[in-house]
Write a protein that binds this DNA or RNA. Structure first.
Lengths: 205, 205
DNA sequence: CGTACTTTTGAATCGCATCAAATCTGGTGG
DNA sequence: CCACCAGATTTGATGCGATTCAAAAGTACG
């Protein structure tokens, strides 16, 4: 998941964008925008992690997206209001690019335009994969689906705590710990620190 | 959900696209493409319903998207393979637009380009809403979330059977019937044929 | 008018959420 | 350097709600 932007967008941002961008440091917990705010800037994450978050009826956090590097909150470009909160999950640095500047460059720079559309299409694919994963009923199936679809060769380096991974999978953290334990005991999944992978040949159960 | 394309795209397709498009009738059950196929055309739905479908480990159907009118399978424009099946849910008509023609028009027609990006951004928003819904744990919460986010004023005209609505909500059809019954008994939801809506002031439980 | 599918209800089961509590971890300040 | 604290990790017990299996009634369509 933390690869998507790096591969979908040019590594170097067009100079015209950088000219108007404001660099800004953020710390864990900083709220960059709130649901209902009017989007005035596009965010580009230089380092750290920003999350798009909504809250369920009981107040629990629902993570819509975790961004580590690359543009964030793309959908809000065309919408009058943010439909979720933007929260820094750890300290890092971002670029704030004024919306008008972004739209101007998008208008003028054909290469950037193409890259941007590819980026959006990639987001659509990624979100569809997440919907598919959340449609699976078993905890084990979701974990395996995650390893298969987010990793390279079923190998994933987690860039977050297991607790927040659990929320991303739509599970309680206890359920995730338990299923990881079971999958490890059964030899389906191997865990080594932050890195998890599937032992090939054993994908089911 | 069946509004999204109509509002996000110009009602009239650019003439340059129509020139190369092939009109085609489909019947319920027709498979338009399969996961793994190489995308050669972009589909535009004139009537009927096309679904993007994947299959879970137990073979059960997972509906990634239902398209009623408008472009479909946009993400596949930039990807070498389809990542899901395309199946007609009912008889209808589609336009098949060759990929090269689509890319050419996208290159030349600035208005169409903007409309397309807006469309993609809308898809991202729609998918995020679906992820949020699937992250909710209770069946009632998902139904209410659907009515709130997909309807006008919490009022929705279902364009599908409740059984396939259940799959879209990530529920068994029995669970959906039961929760609808309960919500109706409690006076939270009113059902009148295909149309469902929330009785205002009572959103929880 | 028959057949296939949806809708609806019932009963039993199972998995996950929830509540609880102990341990471990990294980071902070004394 | 150590004590301390907040949060993550891990395990246990319990209950609820959704799945599953089953079956009947309703409905659409040829």
């Amino acid at each position: 998941m933390n690869r998507q932007t790096a591969e979908a967008l040019p590594t170097d941002i067009p100079a015209a964008l950088l000219a108007d961008a404001r660099r800004r440091a953020v710390r864990a917990g900083d709220i960059l925008f709130r649901q209902g705010d009017i989007p005035r800037t596009i965010l580009f994450i230089l380092s750290g992690e920003i999350r798009l978050v909504r809250h369920g009826p009981a107040g629990e956090e629902i993570i819509l997206q975790r961004g580590r590097g690359g543009f964030l909150a793309e959908a809000s470009l065309w919408s009058p209001r943010y439909h979720c909160d933007g929260v820094a999950a750890e300290s890092g640095e971002i670029l704030e690019i004024p919306r008008e500047a972004f739209e101007r460059v998008l208008e003028d720079d054909g290469d950037f335009q193409r890259a941007w559309m590819r980026h959006l299409a990639g987001e659509v694919r990624r979100l569809r994969a997440q919907c598919e994963r959340l449609s699976l009923h078993g905890a084990a199936e979701r974990v395996i689906h995650y390893l298969e679809s987010e990793g390279e060769d079923g190998r994933v380096r987690l860039s977050q705590s297991r607790k927040s991974w659990a929320r991303e999978l739509g599970l309680s953290h206890e359920a995730l710990y338990r299923v990881l334990r079971r999958l490890r005991d059964e030899g389906v999944v191997v865990a080594e620190g932050d890195t998890l992978w599937l032992r090939q040949g054993l994908k089911r159960r």
